[in-house]
Design a protein around this nucleic acid. Sequence first.
DNA 1: ACCGTTCACTTGACATTTCAAGCTTGAATG
DNA 2: CATTCAAGCTTGAAATGTCAAGTGAACGGT
Lengths: 165, 165
Amino acid sequence: MARQPRRGAKQPPVTWLTAPELESWLSVVRLLTWLPWSIDQQLRRDSKLSMVEYQVLAMLSDNPDRTMRMSALAEVTNASLSRLSHVVERLERRGFVRRTPDRTDGRFTKAILTDVGFEALAAAAPGHVRHLRSLVIDVLSPEQLRRLGRDAARIMDRIDSPSTG
Amino acid sequence: MARQPRRGAKQPPVTWLTAPELESWLSVVRLLTWLPWSIDQQLRRDSKLSMVEYQVLAMLSDNPDRTMRMSALAEVTNASLSRLSHVVERLERRGFVRRTPDRTDGRFTKAILTDVGFEALAAAAPGHVRHLRSLVIDVLSPEQLRRLGRDAARIMDRIDSPSTG
DNA sequence: ACCGTTCACTTGACATTTCAAGCTTGAATG
DNA sequence: CATTCAAGCTTGAAATGTCAAGTGAACGGT
């Protein structure tokens, strides 16, 4: 995947991946593909929720008034505003979430977790957490998990920084 | 996200995530979302290729005859057969790949990287690898990268194993 | 040779995501 | 005030992905 294509011409200023680097990277790519997939499967199967939907409900539930502005919600769920808008629309149709304009500033929209939505979350949470533990949390030592989180954060710093050269 | 929903009733046999566990996990989730996104952006912007498309071309190029069976290709690119079929169809329309039935067993289909496809890959590779290095490879020490790969593999083992209880 | 299966895809319909406008509200300027 | 301007969403269409069936080729008995 990041190995030099078998070729003769052109030698750009690129350092190709070494074999160990490539191996580690391919391992990570596998994870990037299958971990979200597995989480999604479990949630859909057991709770008829996608991962984003779960995240939305969970993040809302975490607020005292079960309310968040769309833009804030988009941020914490790692979704674009557009995507979130569609997701919340679906959740609204299911009666899990409600939307109202913010009184203090009509530009904001507040998303509110309904009781029905909360019940759905409460029903989904145990299975989700058990699954999470069995796949990730309990598979690594606390130290390994801590390091994994730190490495992820380090990479995220690079993605956030504008110097994507 | 995996924090206990504020609630009174029901106490299932679940161990909720501790604060440090949750923090690490949320970090990982952020990575799962944004790293593929960032890679996709760079490839689309600079080479009009999605990440799967790049993977397909790269994996094909890695074979002496630039050929692979669809099922094998699906495996190494972490795609379902169905998804791969659609992807290869698009690549075929662009002239990057060709398909022919396998003579030795008519059930198999062989995907073949064309010269045009190879050129596209060769043009895309340097930028992709530079991006990869700047986001991931060169951000971690060799030791950290090795561990990251190992952790990813460990989690993948759990996902592959049928004991998803 | 015939029948039912399994394997390796392909296909089409449907769901989701992304992308590019568009809309509405408030702020800033004159 | 009227007039831009930007922010914060929403929307609709196009791209993409998923899911469930369908197709045709080999295989395993009989």
